[in-house]
């Protein structure tokens, strides 16, 4: 807008500012990505190579490391990946579906406890799960559910932050008239929710499904207290196990490989969807 006033010196100052901004950004990006670069390089190198010192070029032991790690008896990695995938997928589905349902109940119907219910959800949104972990573990052992996946999956039906996000989304894109129109067409309320509301919520569901999946995939605190038997362990527990084993005696190629397996799939999926996710963060504004 100030093009008319812009003289030569102002133009140079903008250019200098741009250059400085890019230098600053590139330094930050370097700090962000460098650890992952070393991870990538070292997961392709064998144990003796890694011990010899650092190299900026990848080695040739990628397949060798994968095969060693997969056949390691101490670390049931394949099981770990499958367990993590299974739990995280269930959590993503349950938390988005039921949060959508809860938000819809509050958004579309007028009932006496409507406001109180929403206030309650807002109030508990930020309370961390760790503070009730003691009671949770005791309850789960009373239910004989210790060392099963149920305590890691079912509680995700009540995800206050996801409900909040869904509610926000509905306020901007789900007019109550749509529900009324569907009623006039004779649809029952569940049908309306499943066939009309869910498709409208798709963008919000996608973003929240990704966040729920990732936070369950990364979760370490509760699974470590619930799961005991090796064949039910998830990836974060295996990483902790690797850490508590005598690190230096271990094959470093395998160590880097396990870290890479835990990190890179999420990273690759993220870079395909990043624009979408970043927009979701800005829109939701609240994230756990």
């Amino acid at each position: 807008m100030s093009a008319d006033f812009m003289n030569a010196s102002a133009k140079t100052s903008v250019i200098i500012k741009r250059v400085l901004a890019y230098v600053f950004l590139i330094i930050l990006i370097f700090i962000c990505l460098f650890p992952f670069y070393i991870l990538m390089i070292n997961s392709t190198r064998s144990h003796p190579d890694i011990q010899k010192g650092f190299s900026f070029l990848p080695g040739r032991s990628l397949i060798f490391n994968i095969r060693n790690l997969m056949s390691n008896d101490q670390l049931p990695v394949v099981r770990g990946i499958l367990n993590s995938l299974f739990i995280s997928s269930c959590v993503a589905v349950l938390s988005t579906y039921f949060s959508g349902m809860t938000a819809f109940g509050i958004h579309a119907y007028r009932f006496r406890l409507r406001k109180a219910a929403y206030l309650f959800i807002l109030l508990i949104m930020m309370v961390p799960t760790q503070v009730s972990a003691l009671g949770f573990i005791r309850l789960m052992s009373d239910f004989k559910l210790m060392d099963t996946f149920i305590p890691l999956i079912i509680p995700s039906i009540a995800a206050p932050i996801v409900v909040f996000f869904m509610k926000q989304y509905m306020e901007s894109s789900l007019p109550v008239e749509i529900v009324e129109a569907s009623r006039i067409d004779g649809a029952n309320e569940f049908y309306t929710f499943n066939r009309i509301v869910i498709p409208i919520l798709k963008p919000a569901i996608a973003v929240q499904a990704i966040f729920s999946f990732v936070s369950s995939w990364n979760n370490y605190f509760l699974p470590a207290l619930i799961i005991e038997s090796p064949r039910r362990k998830t990836l974060p527990i295996l990483i902790a196990q690797l850490r508590s084993a005598d690190f230096l005696k271990f094959d470093l190629g395998q160590v880097y490989m396990l870290i890479a397996i835990s990190i890179f799939p999420v990273m690759i999926v993220y870079f395909f969807l990043s624009k979408f996710i970043v927009r979701g963060v800005a829109l939701g504004s609240v994230k756990g």
Partner: peptide
């Protein structure tokens, strides 16, 4: 995109 990425990384890994 790049600066947000570490937020999704498994903290333990």
């Amino acid at each position: 995109s790049i600066i947000y990425m570490p937020n999704l990384i498994m903290a333990s890994a």
